[in-house]
Simulated assay, not measured.
Amino acid sequence: MMDWIPIVLVTFKLLVLAIGMFFAIKWHYDQGKKLATNAVLRAGGKVAAIFMLSLLGLGLFTLVLARTFGLDLSFP
């Protein structure tokens, strides 16, 4: 009896996870179909703008930190 418990529980776990993944993918797919094209483009533009601003902020922070430690960042 004890030999079958891990097999049954792992099988049950895999079945529950597979069903959950199926419904999660289906829900996201259905939500994607509801969005208008303009909304998707607007959201993509916002993500790109946030990424570029964070990249600029990281670059400036790195420059200030390098100058604080006295690193020579001049081009030859």
Rank of each mutant, 00 (worst) to 15 (best):
A36K: 13
M52S: 07
D72E: 06
L17V: 08
L56R: 01
T68D: 10
D30E: 13
D72N: 05
L71Q: 11
S74P: 01
A36D: 11
L9S: 06
T62D: 03
L55F: 13
F61I: 03
G59K: 01
M21W: 14
G59H: 11
F61H: 00
K34G: 09
L35W: 11
M1A: 03
T11S: 11
G32T: 03
D72A: 02
T11C: 04
T68L: 11
F69W: 04
K34E: 11
K13S: 07
L65P: 01
S54K: 09
A49R: 13
L71I: 14
K26Y: 11
T62N: 00
L56F: 13
T37E: 15
L15W: 09
K46N: 15
L17F: 09
T37N: 12
F12T: 03
P6T: 12
P76A: 04
K13M: 12
V8C: 10
A18H: 01
P76C: 00
R42W: 04
L41R: 04
A18V: 08
Q31W: 08
W27F: 09
K34Q: 15
G32H: 02
G57I: 07
L73G: 02
A36R: 15
M2V: 07
L65V: 01
I19E: 07
G45Q: 14
H28Q: 15
S54A: 06
G57L: 05
L41T: 08
H28L: 12
L9E: 08
L60F: 09
L58W: 05
D72I: 00
G57D: 03
F22P: 00
K13N: 09
A36E: 10
S54V: 08
F61Q: 03
G32P: 03
L65M: 14
T11P: 01
F69K: 06
G32E: 06
R67H: 12
M2E: 15
M1P: 08
S54R: 04
M52K: 03
M21G: 00
R42F: 06
G32S: 04
A24L: 14
L58P: 00
I5M: 13
K33N: 03
T62W: 06
M21A: 10
F69P: 04
L35M: 07
A49V: 03
A43S: 14
L71P: 00
K46M: 13
W4H: 14
S74C: 00
L41Y: 06
L35D: 02
R67K: 12
